[in-house]
């Protein structure tokens, strides 16, 4: 990972005093109360915390699905807190790959069409789109299932399609929200092994989870509690790749 060590490369994520409040009737709920976080290129970070801790809100902000009430956020050195709707859409398209707990695949589209989706919005021409979708599916070992629809795939395969969709734009950041939350433990290990491999390939990965053993795969575990960073520590990843096929 030579990029990660180069001094002139900005961190993938840099936040300063990130706050997010929600109006709930008359009162205001302060979900985030000033988060400072820096994630360098090539890092593999788990964000942990109990429900209600603000980790989902943080993930939405990092994923540019939401804009902060206060504070600043640079994604790849680019300030995104002030971006408008169209620019946020462009950032989501180019810079971020999302992996959701519930996969969020389009039911009527084949695996390949699902993976192509971000490229469609990115304006990539059809032939190149198909080629890149095939390559992304090959990265998750699903090249032979490209014409299958989500309902013809197992849970683990669906999640791998969704990872391929996240990878296909070659984003700066792979953002996974409880990626194994809907999978059994064996399939969970397969998916985590895939994340481990993607990390070794040089991808920057942020996984949001409330499960300790999922977080153990990351090199760094950030714990959020009551809207602030409660702990931020390095972790020695548990080797997992060996016990899965």
């Amino acid at each position: 990972m030579p990029d990660a060590t180069a001094t002139n490369v900005p961190p993938v994520i840099r936040t300063r005093g990130l706050c997010r409040s929600f109006a709930m009737g008359a009162s205001t709920v302060r979900a985030l109360r000033g988060v400072d976080l820096v994630i360098e290129r090539g890092e593999y970070v788990a964000i942990m915390g109990p429900s209600g801790s603000g980790k989902s809100t943080l993930m939405n902000l990092i994923g540019c699905l939401d804009t902060p009430s206060e504070g600043e956020y640079w994604l790849n050195g680019q300030p995104v807190a002030t971006l408008g709707e169209e620019e946020l859409a462009r950032v989501r398209n180019h810079e971020i790959g999302f992996v959701f707990q519930t996969f969020n695949l389009l039911a009527r589209a084949s695996a390949a069409r699902n993976v192509e989706l971000p490229l469609i919005y990115g304006g990539v021409p059809p032939a190149e789109r198909r080629q890149r979708a095939i390559e992304a599916l090959a990265q998750v070992d699903l090249a032979d299932r490209m014409d299958h629809r989500p309902n013809q795939l197992s849970g683990g395969q669906r999640q791998r399609v969704s990872i391929a969709r996240a990878l296909v734009t070659r984003p700066a950041l792979l953002l996974a929200d409880e990626p194994t939350g809907n999978l059994d433990s064996k399939t969970s290990y397969e998916i985590m092994a895939l994340f481990d491999k993607l990390h070794r390939d040089g991808n920057t990965i942020v996984v949001v989870t409330h499960e300790r053993d999922i977080a153990e795969h990351a090199q760094r575990i950030v714990t959020i509690r009551d809207g602030v960073v409660a702990s931020d520590e390095q972790n020695v990843p548990r080797p997992v790749g060996t016990e899965t096929a």
Binding site: N93, L117, R165, T169
Partner: peptide
Amino acid sequence: VRKAVGAR
């Protein structure tokens, strides 16, 4: 989903 992957 479409918005998350970049639809304006």
